[in-house]
């Protein structure tokens, strides 16, 4: 077991000082996701204006991996167009489901490449994806709401 590959410094740094933490206004949708096997939880809000991810705020309780990956998520996606953010999302999910066989692209994932090691620990992949799944769920609801309000 290569503990260092799982707990990269970048991950520990984000865990100790998470970026964009806390719940903020304004927001369109708030979701609450849990990992039923371990009890990790995240409450996450998204604020989208004109197809741009203006803010992602969250209140999370969980392990270093789930906390750090939510922090990295906000760094990567805030300020992006929703379509581009979804693209990054699928790149990250693909990396996490690769069992360590995909070489991460630092240009796309930035600090997110630190999670390549997590993919080799099947028991921890869900931790890394908790915040990401919450964001996708929230964003999908924003899009539905916006389209709903148009019709």
């Amino acid at each position: 077991m290569d503990l260092q590959s799982l707990y990269q410094e970048i991950i520990l740094d984000h865990y100790k000082s998470p970026h964009h933490a806390g719940l903020r206004d304004p927001f369109e949708v708030e979701v609450h996701h849990v990992n039923p096997t371990c009890g990790d939880e995240v409450t996450l809000r998204v604020h989208v204006v004109d197809d741009v991810v203006v803010d992602i705020s969250y209140d999370a309780e969980g392990c270093s991996i789930s906390q750090a990956s939510t922090s990295v998520l906000t760094d990567l996606l805030i300020g992006k167009k929703v379509d581009d953010a979804l693209e990054i999302h699928s790149t990250f999910v693909e990396l996490m489901q690769s069992r360590g066989k995909v070489e991460p692209d630092e240009d796309i994932l930035e600090d997110g490449i630190a999670f390549a090691g997590v993919a080799k620990f099947p028991g921890r992949v869900k931790c890394a994806l908790l915040g990401w799944m919450a964001w996708k769920d929230a964003t999908a609801r924003v899009v539905v709401d916006v389209e709903g309000s148009v019709t």
């Binding site: 077991m1 799982l6 270093s64 991996i65």
Partner: peptide
Amino acid sequence: GIHPHDVSQVLDS
């Protein structure tokens, strides 16, 4: 300061 998952991961190693 250390989540149980992380404790058990280090112990497992």
